[in-house]
Design a protein around this nucleic acid. Structure first.
Lengths: 259, 259
DNA sequence: CTCGTCCTAC
DNA sequence: GTAGGACGAG
């Protein structure tokens, strides 16, 4: 059986909000190392990969592998019932029909409990190869969000060019063109404002802004976002969470005429 | 060529916000004295006249007369990409296809650059005669905004009556009637709260509140607004900016049955 | 000053 | 129904 207690119901709320537009139904794969989720969007252009390590819960108990097939719209409805500071406990049997969510107010004077019916979901197993990326950019997640929104006013696509000079986000559209260039810099007082660029080879790739803007819904989960790029390989957008948990998005580049 | 650096990108943002509902496309006329804009609204009832003097920029360089025909919706989209404290530099060639906007963060670690395509706009040249007005009212811009909004709840039109007693904004509507009367007064500690009335002849005119409320979007540009009236002549609503720059709106009075 | 929400217009 | 702009709160 699964029993996982999350001090901040809010964390799951934000995670589900960030992925529910991409994926409708998916398995939450639970085992003793934590709860994982991997799914492609309908158009098979983007992939989301979530890992909530057992250390992010206290306590965490999961004896066997359990796949919880959940409709994210239903889960969203239930999670809306959580107050922001509520403690959330997820529970499921070994061969479950339902997953059980319990919300406790911090003062324990209020307990709400919900069961969500589970569904059988064909697990197309997604091997994501560990890649060495040619360029890795860390930057404030709010800044990345801002850039994507600004450029979306002009175009559907953005090119991300990373050289040792810095990283340039650029687009062309009907009304004109735009670009934002960032140089790496370090702010000792506010490390969340750092921009760090780690480059082994210059890269230049083009992506759909609509997807990137969608990924940016995760911005509130982490002050920093990491962009990992290699030519002709999907972009990795990673929001690191506490305890080595993470929320990652992969997005295939646009190629040739698509741009 | 034009190169004009504005310490506060915000200023242009507010100016464009205040006029974009009135005018869709218009020329920014640049010469060595600064950047000017004059345009009538579609119904030819209102006229907007902006003057940003060269002294409002540092540096400002414009060798020849250049007319930049800009779609204000496009310009708005680009200006939204400016952080509030960004420094804006406008650049254009002598016979330009595009105008180039560069936003620099104060720390200069972030540079965004946009090109907006220009359009050819027939310049219906508007000679605005310098008029001696019968009445000139200076008042807090927030107070004028408040009055216009309040009265718009009752009617589409407002009459502005100015005598040596004071100025009275009045309207009648289906649900009732309303009026606000101001007398001149001076507040030494807060000169922005002053109401000053300068009168050579009593006036009474009626105007569309919808337009006045629109003009009031400029309220954040200046603590005070100046209303200049003469009978049977368009009202002048002026927001004075630093360095003798200004944003002016003219509005034809309603006459006879229109009221 | 920024964020989130509400309301209005298309 | 969606998108954009206005307003109020933190």
């Amino acid at each position: 059986m699964l029993e996982a207690r999350l001090e901040q119901a809010n964390l799951l709320k934000k995670v589900v909000d960030a992925i529910k537009d991409l994926v409708q139904d998916c398995n939450f794969d639970c085992n003793d190392s934590g709860i994982a989720l991997q799914a492609m969007d309908n158009s098979h252009v983007a992939l989301v990969s979530m890992m909530l390590k057992s250390e992010s819960f206290s306590p965490f108990r999961c004896d066997r592998n359990i796949a919880l097939g959940i409709n994210l719209t239903s889960l969203t409805k239930v999670l809306r019932a959580a107050q922001n500071e509520d403690i959330l406990t997820l529970k499921a049997e070994d061969a479950p029909d339902v997953v059980n969510l319990v919300f406790e107010s911090a003062e324990s004077d209020r307990i709400s409990e919900y069961d969500i019916k589970l569904m059988d979901i064909d697990q197309e197993h997604l091997g994501i190869p560990e890649t060495e990326y040619a360029a890795t950019i860390s930057m404030p997640s709010a800044e990345f969000q801002r850039i994507c929104r600004d450029l979306m006013a002009l175009s559907e696509s953005v090119s991300i060019e990373c050289s040792k000079e810095g990283v340039k986000f650029a687009c062309q559209g009907d009304i004109g063109s735009g670009s934002v260039t960032l140089r790496s810099h370090t702010n000792v007082d506010k490390p969340e404002m750092n921009v760090e660029i780690d480059l082994t080879e210059p890269v230049s790739l083009t992506f759909s802004l609509k997807y990137l803007v969608g990924f940016c819904k995760a911005s509130s989960l982490s002050g920093q976002v990491k962009l990992c790029l290699s030519n002709e390989v999907p972009l990795l957008v990673e929001y690191a969470l506490a305890n080595n948990s993470y929320l990652r998005f992969y997005l295939a580049p646009k190629i040739g005429d698509e741009e």
